[in-house]
Design a protein around this nucleic acid. Structure first.
Lengths: 234, 234
DNA sequence: CAAAAAGTATGATAATTATCACATATTTTG
DNA sequence: CAAAATATGTGATAATTATCATACTTTTTG
């Protein structure tokens, strides 16, 4: 079930959707030669909060969660990453220590691009540089939304919105369930609530006919109801 | 009481602490010629959520709050800006609509730098470009911290941390009070709670000897107690 | 495959926080 | 400066959410 090894990034199916899409063929060849391919088993940590960055990962295939530990030691999931996404760039570009850990949600293949290679690209290719800036600024906007929601919405509203976010980010598997393997605890760590509260509210949503539950699997039955419950406007 | 008009950014006292510190004298002269100086009265809106950006403001003198409106119409204060700070760059760089409004907290002088002037600088000066990237990425890290705190800390913890943040950002006035004119409601809009809860907790902090209250003014009497209460580690 | 571990589910209860009501104080404005 | 508007302060109460306990189910692992 493991992905074929792609030796050149020129041939990578994720290229057009990635931060590297504006590179020249020569530049892509250059990073291909500098990158290394790494495999992470489900649950493994790719990047650890507090450490110093030595480069970035471009996810070739797999899903990952980015999270911070709160003062009580509880995980707070900040966002997700999937095929084609770049992770670890924030600390590299800000010159700070790593502010969030990244863990694989399933078996994951990623390419590690060392710091120097990335900064060479930034210096020589303004389009790439601008694209990185765009990514960071977009994330900053998303963060503002999340801040507002966490501060002002109820747990019920936030859970509805989180389900829609998961649907938007990962879509459905062949059975129509959300295509991401999260535990109830991890969902609670997105919503910012207790695991039991998530379980209870999911049961309510099920009673009300908005979702279907099948073990760990969640299927959204009525997204517009969830939009209404979550007061999601955009 | 109004600031002297500074015609050239070369002479601006904020220059070294601003995003423009890496510009060449020629580049600074260039933006000086393109900028316009604007005055905002306390309470006025500089930038409005939802609109399209036409440039950025560099605050010459004054304090401002950045806030988003939640789905219930309540303000959520995301962060602050003061002398030398650049505001409005996020939407400009991400190519999105403006995600947060900016309002003056006191009478405020700012320089407006049009979009084209900014993008010219980005294209011709990689250092400036990198500096902007650094700013955005730094803010992204701060946003992650805020997200984690809002999701996991109690209102009491958050209020203690907010008081420390205000102290760190704005310092004290000559009387030793926090040097920023915020209402209890605005503090509540940072903490993410009801105004009454802020009022009650401030009274508690006063009873416990951690702060002193004098009308709207707040003086921090025991910051290490607040650090303890807020579980602030960094 | 069986045991162990981890996760899900539900009830009872406690703690936190929001809301409403209203009195007082402060600030703003004509 | 006085009236009006806005903000602060406090109590009572309701709603939300967390915590603890415990049973059951699913997943993981030797």
């Amino acid at each position: 079930m493991s992905q074929p090894t792609v030796t050149s990034c020129n041939l990578c199916g994720n290229l057009l959707g990635s931060a590297f899409r504006d590179l020249t063929p020569d530049e892509i060849t250059e990073i291909s030669e500098q990158k290394s391919c790494v495999f992470f088993k489900k649950g493994q940590i790719l990047i650890q909060e507090g450490s110093r960055p030595h480069g970035v990962y471009c996810i070739h295939h797999g899903k990952a969660k980015l999270f911070k530990l709160g003062s009580g030691g509880k995980e707070q999931i900040i966002r997700f990453a999937k095929d084609g996404d770049l992770i670890g760039y924030r600390s590299l570009l800000s010159g700070e220590t790593i502010s969030a850990s990244v863990a694989a949600l399933d078996d994951l293949h990623a390419c590690f691009i060392p710091k120097n290679a990335l900064f060479s690209l930034i210096e020589e290719n303004p389009k790439f540089s601008l694209h990185l800036m765009k990514m960071a600024c977009h994330e900053l906007g998303e963060a503002g939304r999340l801040i507002t929601n966490l501060a002002q919405k109820t747990v019920r509203e936030r859970l509805a919105e989180v389900l829609l976010l998961l649907h938007h980010t990962f879509g459905n598997d062949p059975d129509g369930n959300l295509n991401v393997p999260l535990t109830r605890e991890e969902i609670a760590n997105m919503v910012g609530t207790a695991t039991e509260s998530v379980i209870r509210l999911l049961s309510e949503f099920k009673q009300e006919g908005h979702i279907a539950l099948n073990g760990r699997k969640i299927r959204l039955e009525d997204t517009s109801a969830l939009v209404r419950i979550g007061n999601v406007y955009d």
